[in-house]
Design a protein around this nucleic acid. Structure first.
Lengths: 252, 252
DNA sequence: TTATTAAAGTGGTCTTACCAAGGAAGGGTT
DNA sequence: AACCCTTCCTTGGTAAGACCACTTTAATAA
């Protein structure tokens, strides 16, 4: 008489809860499309009716939306309430980038601190694999892969903090920043010394979280973003310098 | 090519809508037991999975309740129907509530710190008048006015931090929290000692910002929200205590 | 009468199958 | 070559039947 059932008696409830958590934490972003019901149910290890019950619940909560023959999507209403205004603001006003990085510094240092406190073994295993991946792609020359790995790493830290707002905010910020990161990474990639500093910073954050040292983790994250801020302004200055040079050439 | 389907493309939606209507109209009273899923699905002319999807939706809406092996019943309390999506999320997920306050603690302490650094004379003048107003309404018995003054005060601090993200984020959080603040304030207002603690905390934040002491301001803000968190949990416990007392009386 | 137990009823889940709507690839027309 | 239309595949929507787990109830044995 073994009860292998989880605490939630209804499997559909467990599925719905898991999905809701992933949506709120941001790992399932608004607009994302879920796998087909057949694939997803197999992936989750439940039957299709059960998956459907979970989906229907989340639909009634306004978190999901289905299109017959099209697929199932994450509603973008969360964005409408929280982030959309930012996208608009930031796209039109590059001046806000420093504000954004300042905010990110606060957010990620806090996230790192909480992650160091609360990270479960599962979280740490996930961080381990993501860090290993991050370190390996940094050794390559694929800047695009570096961005993806970097985003995934920081997102995992945010989720290890076990605060849905921090998870969601981090995901939002990542999406907003994404485009600007590439410029910065290109800039850094041309400077091997700084490039290696970046790697050691990630290592420091990773280690501090692994060893459950909140203060150290917070400091490491803070100085990491500080470093990014600095090189970001450097990159911007260089771009402007080149632009003015080009402009001079064009005017000659 | 006749489309005999109603406006609702999903049969489960139609079933859920019909049931909800019957419940709200009173033909299905709170406490009533529905026919078994097999009988009911036959009666409605739909399949059992479809009926179940409809039922799950109404469960997530808080209209129905199921007991494994027992039956499906109409929920006793019919409330929380026409509320904000965010409010709904908060009410349905108490864990989000603590997450929210944790996030707010981070946000506002940082905002206070930055405000202490960057507040201009104009900012400080604004804070002076808002604080004076806050202190005066706290002496009155108008809890509603207290909320407004409190929100305005904290919002002004966030704007004095001169970071648009912090300002925007604070505004969003304030909107979300607004409803729950009232419960907390009612709770505190009945306890003069704690009520005065609240006033002195506001005073401490205000002074620290005026005198440009970031560390002091951050500490004051942090302990202020910590105080709010504590009294919030106290208030929740008291509500639960009252509820259980009422329940005991009802059973006698 | 009381306690135990067996059976019937009910929600929870799985499997299989078919229908309907959307989308993309291929073939035909202009 | 460009455009439109058909066809087929994928995906969500529904149905039917079976089995499991839990609850209730009633029959049975003490």
């Amino acid at each position: 008489m073994i009860r292998n059932r989880p605490a939630v008696t209804r499997i559909s409830d467990a599925v719905a809860g898991g999905l809701e958590k992933r949506i709120l934490e941001g790992s399932l972003k608004p607009g994302d499309r879920l796998p087909s019901e057949r694939d997803f149910s197999a992936e989750l290890g439940v039957s299709r009716p059960t998956l459907r019950e979970a989906i229907q619940k989340l639909i009634s909560k306004g978190l999901l939306d289905t299109r017959h023959g099209g697929g199932t999507f994450v509603t973008d209403r969360l964005d409408a309430h929280f982030v959309d205004p930012w996208q608009e603001m930031l796209s039109g006003h590059p001046l806000l980038h420093s504000d954004l990085l300042e905010f990110r510094q606060m957010l990620e240092s806090h996230a790192a601190s909480l992650a160091a406190e609360r990270a479960t073994n599962v979280d740490i295993e996930r961080l381990d694999t993501l860090y290993a991946n991050l370190d390996s792609v940094y050794a390559s020359n694929d800047v695009k892969a570096c961005i993806d790995a970097d985003v995934a790493f920081h997102q995992a830290i945010a989720e290890a903090a076990h605060n849905v707002l921090i998870g969601h905010m981090t995901a939002s910020l990542m999406r907003v920043i994404h485009g600007h990161v590439s410029i910065n990474l290109e800039h850094l990639h041309a400077r091997p010394q700084r490039w290696n500093q970046l790697r050691s910073q990630h290592h420091a954050i990773w280690q501090a979280i692994r060893e459950h040292q909140p203060e150290t983790a917070a400091r490491a994250a803070r100085s990491h973003i500080e470093f990014v801020r600095q090189s970001m302004t450097d990159a911007t200055k260089e771009v402007e310098r080149r632009l003015s040079a080009l402009r001079r050439q064009g005017e000659l």
